[in-house]
Nucleic acid binder design. Structure first.
Lengths: 224, 224
DNA sequence: AGTCAGGTTAAGTTATTGTTAATATTGCGA
DNA sequence: TCGCAATATTAACAATAACTTAACCTGACT
């Protein structure tokens, strides 16, 4: 369920928007000014912020600028609510980092269809870079699957992570230390044959030719 | 060709509107009061209904409310014809489920451009798929129904949501965290066997072959 | 030959998931 | 509002897959 933060200084509008969005099954939070919005946004990490442009003190444009500074909110969609499609505010708004506009008076169906469309857009653009091509292997991080010439290979977690690591920079040699750090982290301690065994299993499954040992240094995913 | 239903108690206006819309190549039906409109709408399934607000007996607002109860007319656009842009009627109208307004006196060019714009918008937002086809399962999110080879399967809420989530991206592995976040949200905390049990129930009902476990990672809805 | 780095195998260990039944919660109709 | 039935969650234990380790092997280089 998507979380939406509404920001407007007029309680009536806030209520009107909330009513319509709750009906569409969104989780709705509200803030009544810019400062409030920034706090709540940081705490709640909403997926979308609907932000009135005209507000006393910190206006929508300024609020948006501040919000866009927060790296955690990078994937948050910001939509402006403007009185009319004034060219001025639109330009300023997009420059401040808004994703879209809705003009007042807000029509419920426009509201919901626009928001739906925005979420859809995000959902689509999200699925782009989840696969690594390396030689004739395709590694799909999302599906946790490796396919080799059409055939799917299922790998256990550690083996998959190992492969992803090595294949993420083909031909680069990863030392054992690097591999430990990346896959086990600094907390876990494992014996010194563990990686070798995983490498063995991996080679068995994807074929012996991909992973090369550089003695005294480490392993690499070789791609000619 | 789009079908438009005109509703107004004044024959002159009706005739005026029809003339202008027929010219634009729409298929035009008319009704002279709210009751009539509801009947014709159900029978004819128009793509758009142009509805006068001021009508004796059942007024436009009320008619609209009734129309919006009819699920088949969900995708029908409802446009109000109002004497002037009174704030009151606008709000009431939008709450009743209208999509837009046209104010009287109606200018033919405004009429046709507005209607064109509305159809264009619907054409875009219409692609929201309310049904997922996955293997030989058809999942209808609207009807909360799953059918497998013609037979309907009724699923409890949680199981249904789980299925929808997994089937929304077939073959993608969802981690337990993702599943928790999607179905329970960040607020609720449930024990660590809860998902498993729901998975069990689901598999019992839809068949064992669809949902695959990727140990250490999560679950996926597999579709070959 | 001795040492060092890594390879291999199988057996042990642990972590994760499956399963069932019991318990809690919810929603709904009388 | 009560009580029932349907759902949802938890608990306890079983099953299984993944991971790690130990013991031994191989080959290269000195």
């Amino acid at each position: 369920m998507e979380k939406i933060l509404l920001v407007d200084d007029e309680p009536d509008i806030l209520e009107f928007l909330r009513y319509n969005l709750v009906k569409e099954n969104y989780q709705v939070l509200t803030a009544k000014n810019g400062r409030d919005a920034i706090n709540k946004a940081q705490k709640e990490m909403p997926h979308l912020i609907l932000l009135d442009v005209m507000m006393p003190e910190l206006d929508g444009i300024e609020t948006c600028r501040v919000l866009r500074q927060i790296p955690e909110l990078d994937n948050t969609i910001i939509v402006f609510l403007t009185a009319r499609s004034e060219d001025y505010s639109q330009i300023a708004g997009f420059e401040a980092g808004a994703d879209d506009y809705i003009t007042k008076p807000v029509k419920p169906r426009v509201l919901s269809s626009k928001i739906k469309a925005l979420f859809r857009r995000v959902a689509v653009s999200d699925e782009i870079p989840n696969t690594i091509q390396a030689g004739n292997l395709i590694i799909d991080k999302e599906k946790y699957l490796v396919s080799k010439e059409g055939a799917d290979i299922v790998l256990p977690k550690k083996e998959f992570e190992l492969l992803v690591l090595l294949a993420s920079k083909p031909n680069r040699v990863f030392t054992r230390e690097e591999i430990y750090a990346a896959i086990w982290g600094n907390q876990v301690i494992v014996g010194d044959r563990t990686i070798d065994v995983h490498i063995r299993k991996l080679r068995e499954k994807i074929g012996e030719s991909y992973i090369k040992t550089t003695k005294g240094v480490g392993y690499k995913f070789e791609i000619k």
